[in-house]
């Protein structure tokens, strides 16, 4: 069902929706890049909430949920890091701009979550790994907040202001474009839920095996 939804949304984004007046067809990457980023942010919020719940209750079930959230969110973040440079190259002329604070903070966020997964894989003691992981996920979410607010704090040159919620006459004015965007977001959300549930089951089985 998730793959069918993604296929339909991809058709809408690539063929049904009109091309952008300034960037042309390459702007259609937006319909993949931004929803994937949003889904990964939601995953990391879920991961941090579960981590905090673990710190409060010391219940490993919360930690298992946190790991599943972060693992799936990490995959979606990696996708954002792949689609972003492929959009930047034809529009900015370069694959990556180290001077853009949003890009930099996003990359740091990806590194933090990579470190989270590496730590989890290397620490044998489950309780200790859960404790360190929960603290790290709180730090990583603080960085994620920085990613979202970077365009307001530094007025980044490469990244424009908010595209969906901005002053009238700018952004996605065309209703078909908005529909394609939300359709893609819902499809990726559906895919996220499917993969997350599979990861959650796996983590639960592994915890039972170790016990």
């Amino acid at each position: 069902m998730a793959f069918v939804a993604i296929a339909v949304s991809t058709y809408a984004a690539l063929l049904a929706v009109p091309a952008d007046a300034v960037q042309g067809n390459v702007q259609r990457i937006f319909y993949f890049h931004v929803p994937l980023a949003w889904v990964s942010f939601l995953a990391f919020i879920g991961g941090t909430v579960s981590g905090v719940l673990y710190l409060i209750t010391r219940n490993l079930a919360h930690d298992v949920r946190a790991v599943a959230f972060v693992k799936t969110g990490w995959a979606f973040t990696s996708t954002v890091l792949v689609t972003g440079p492929l959009w930047a190259r034809p529009v900015w002329g370069v694959f990556w701009n180290w001077g853009d604070e949003r890009l930099l903070s996003f990359f740091v966020m990806w590194l933090l979550y990579s470190a989270y997964l590496l730590l989890r894989a290397t620490i044998a003691d489950r309780q200790k790994a859960a404790r360190i992981g929960a603290v790290l996920s709180i730090l990583a979410l603080a960085n994620a907040v920085l990613v979202v607010t970077a365009i307001y704090i530094w007025k980044t040159v490469s990244h424009p202001g908010p595209v969906l919620f901005r002053a009238e006459g700018t952004g996605l004015a065309n209703p078909a474009m908005r529909l394609a965007f939300w359709s893609m977001f819902c499809s990726f959300m559906l895919l996220f839920i499917v993969i997350f549930l599979a990861q959650l089951t796996l983590e639960e089985v592994e915890v039972k095996d170790h016990a």
Binding site: T10, L14, Q23, G24, N25, V26, R28, I29, F32, H33, L36, A75, F76, S78, T79, V82, T83, L86, W87, R89, P90, L191, I195
Partner: peptide
């Protein structure tokens, strides 16, 4: 060139997932 990058990005996203 832009079409090429568009399809590369879509394929890359699908491939990673």
């Amino acid at each position: 060139e832009r079409i090429y990058y568009l399809y590369a990005a879509v394929l890359a996203a699908v491939a990673v997932l």
